[in-house]
Design a protein around this nucleic acid. Structure first.
Lengths: 344, 344
DNA sequence: CTGAAAGCGCTTACAG
DNA sequence: CTGAAAGCGCTTACAG
């Protein structure tokens, strides 16, 4: 059994030359048939001979050879800053859906929350991707990327000048959230931010803070903290900050992501802090679990699947050489109010 | 600005020939230096000339050309049946961690819960991956894959004869769960299974059922249902089944994944069914959210990150031509008891 | 409609 | 230590 494993040998590769020999044609003809470019260039006779040979030998065009000849591969690279955030699972599903089967999706992820570096970019580009999808990028990253081909940005507010983009209007939901809290009677709130400097986090925070101050909800500078996107870290950070926040009259905590909010909920449970009576909690993303958390979590809903789907569509158009009718698309966000901000 | 986007041109590719010309050497020498194979084959003089030229031109070995010449790419493909399950985010993180920077991780996902087909396999193999990591595969899939090179299976119970593997001992946790419920006084339970025919689901179910019957916890055949791994679908399935289950004395519901369990929790809340008083609920996976759900969820903890990390290590050894000291590794699972099965 | 040939960028015996 | 050359598998003008 072990020898079965150790001696795994690659089956002899079936090449276009083998198909050509079997069908009695040239490799040029095999290539034409395999790629469906026979229109007025290959006789019916030869088409069927080649098809038969392909089927019998189980031939598949080698993508390495093909990529080298064409100058581009069939790989689409999706660069995301953080796969561990379940938000991305939905983005990925959307991308796959719209990209179709002819492109291979390569997920490139950096370590949790870190932005990819210039060196990573080069390695990605060395794969000769057919297209690039970049989520929540930094401006430097885009600078490094400047040499690329088809490129679509996802969730890249303020970076529209670099490339076509699909964005989320997080500000709208953030403002709704501020108004919701203010109208629920809160006058002092704290903010738990993501630690990565991604634009969307900044936008969420700034839109919230601006609208908050407009409606009489105060968030003082030392009531803003940040942690990585991790339940445990958020819990710890909240644990440390809460005593003084409470002393200083904070009655609402807004988190940059639902994951941060789960940490706050967890710590609150451990410490016996009542939610929403003692402190209201809200997040961004509206992850699937926010409906079942304890209590259920008020959150700004972001359409992750749509984001991925639309970005895939745009990229596909670009890769096919089409002009985009709309280079910049914005998807709406909206507040979902649940038990963490409203007493049952 | 739009024209900036439309006219994006690929920067002229820097080739080994350009580096060679600049350094005054042959491309063979450039290749040797770029790949660090200079040991006793290139003079110090030439090494530094080439290094300088590489740095000045920003040369990166083209992975397509390189792959074609070597016969294998630097891509590692991770085939997973379902990215939307957050469990995989951790598996992926573990794989990335142990695989290192020299391999590119390509995530290949099929549509939710569907097994990849023979045709998909061929497309994957056409990329000439350096290695393959296959999660929760079916036997047919492995059959199709038989031609491959380095391969490690993840979470593939019962398929050890195909390739080296890293498995989870889910049975152990499943038995613990059965004993926990029986000792809490339950005598009738129902089971909500995953709809995909993956071995791990079968193993979870069978180990649970076996131990349950051993300790006097009855699970009749018509109290076993299955849905896809989706909160909403699980909720709907539970909603439909619960009235008769309740009538027939069921007081505990065990779910094949935590995601299924979230659906049950959600429906229970909607219907005002008290948990754990009226019905106890438990799952498998121990996702991060299970600690904060309402109520918190009793679950069989599975070490996702370790699974990915260990599988990456094994594959790496294989790709480097090393023999594995242990071809089959099993990681332990354990029950985490929380509020969904024990009254506060 | 068809095939011989060049070329994509690189690696690796091989001869020197 | 070095470079000319063959070859990886495919695609695409090009000549017929």
């Amino acid at each position: 059994m072990d020898s079965h494993q150790q001696t795994r040998t690659r089956a002899p590769r079936v090449t276009a030359a083998m198909v050509a020999a079997k069908a009695g044609v040239s490799t040029a003809t095999v290539s034409l048939v395999a790629n469906g470019k026979t229109q007025g260039r290959v006789s019916e006779e030869n088409i069927s001979r080649v098809r038969t040979a392909i089927a019998e030998l189980g031939y598949v065009v080698d993508s390495i050879g093909s990529s080298l000849a064409r100058g581009v591969s069939s790989i689409v690279i999706l660069v995301t800053p953080d796969v561990s955030n379940p938000f991305f699972a939905n983005v990925i599903a959307g991308v796959r859906e719209s990209l179709g089967a002819q492109y291979q999706l390569l997920l490139s992820v950096t370590d949790a929350g870190e932005s990819p570096q210039a060196d990573d970019v080069r390695k990605l580009l060395a794969l000769r991707p057919a297209g690039l999808l970049v989520g929540a990028p930094s401006a430097e990253f885009l600078e490094d990327l400047s040499a690329g081909g088809p490129l679509v940005l996802l969730d890249a507010p303020g970076l529209d000048s670099w490339a076509p983009s699909v964005n989320l209007d997080v500000a709208q939901g953030a403002r709704e959230l501020a108004r919701h809290l203010a109208s629920s009677g809160h006058t002092r709130a704290a903010y738990v931010d993501g630690i990565t400097g991604t634009e969307t986090f900044k936008l969420r925070r700034e839109a919230f803070l601006e609208e908050a101050s407009r409606c009489g909800l105060t968030v003082s500078a030392d009531h803003i903290i940040s942690t990585s996107i991790d339940v445990g870290e958020a819990a710890a950070a909240f644990a440390e900050a809460w005593p003084s926040w409470q002393r200083e009259g904070v009655t609402a905590v807004v988190c940059g992501t639902d994951t941060h909010a789960y940490g706050v909920l967890q710590e609150a449970r451990v410490e016996g802090i009542r939610i929403p009576e003692e402190v209201a909690v809200a997040g961004f993303d509206d992850l699937p679990y926010s409906a079942t958390s304890n209590p259920s979590l008020t959150s700004v809903h972001l359409p992750a699947t749509d984001l991925g789907r639309k970005a895939g569509e745009q990229l596909r158009a670009l890769m096919e050489g089409l002009a985009l009718t709309e280079a910049h698309v914005t998807l709406e966000s909206s507040l979902v109010v649940r038990g963490s901000t409203v007493p049952a």
